[in-house]
Design a protein around this nucleic acid. Structure first.
Lengths: 118, 118
DNA sequence: ACATCAGTTAGCTCTTGCGCTAACCATTGT
DNA sequence: ACAATGGTTAGCGCAAGAGCTAACTGATGT
């Protein structure tokens, strides 16, 4: 369930760049070729390709070349990895507020009113 | 609902480092001082402090100093920001599979049987 | 055959990230 | 008053990130 933490490094790092997030946004709608993906960005192709490679290396996309054209498609695993990490934190947080609530109710017994300020 | 994308840069970048993720994990259980947080890590204090600052600058934590001791507490906003981004992608993905299903059913009308291959 | 189109390779900048040490406050405890 | 504790500041080094240009390969269209 929990995966190798080093993979999370790349997964999150990939999301830290707006160009890459935009590419993922585009690919969520369906596969596309590199030049289709690159068109909206005011950036030299080699620079853009680095982002593509980063996304591929970090597992966010899968690509394959047919003839001279490379097609990219999004991958769902990193998605679920992020959700898993989020859920993990949520859990810790929950168990903490549980403890706080427990603490609070324990004290409610001794306090006169529950809506009194100050 | 959608927030300034530049903020997401820092938010995700912060998660790209295992030390910082661990700190957040610890803080999910409740507030802690810098030296408490630093203890588990084999790292010079100034190096560790950079992570603390990064987390603070990116909005993941809030800190305040009392006397000579600085206490850190986790912040929930970045959390929901990440969830929002995730949900946004999910939506695109969904509407895509909707379109695919629609495409499939449109063709089911004109095809003789719905389970026929080729 | 040739030109064009899609991507690739190589190599260069500049900035940022992430670690370190050494020296320095400033509060707290004796 | 002094020592110890908890952070902070300054500055250094190395690796990686993010962009560029120039030149090249290899498939496709005419």
């Amino acid at each position: 369930m929990a995966q190798y933490p080093e993979q999370l490094n790349g997964i999150f790092q990939a999301l830290a760049d707006p160009t890459r997030r935009a590419v993922l946004g585009r690919l969520s709608r369906g596969p596309a070729t590199v030049s289709e993906l690159a068109k909206p960005f005011d950036m030299a192709l080699p620079s853009f390709m680095k982002h593509i490679h980063f996304l591929e290396d970090s597992g966010w996309i899968r690509t394959h070349k047919e003839g001279r054209v490379r097609t990219c498609a999004i991958e769902k695993e990193p998605f679920t990895a992020v959700e898993a990490w989020l859920a993990e934190q949520q859990e810790l947080w929950e168990s903490r507020t549980d403890r706080l609530e427990q603490f609070a109710t324990e004290h409610t017994v001794t306090t006169p009113a529950k809506d009194t300020p100050q």
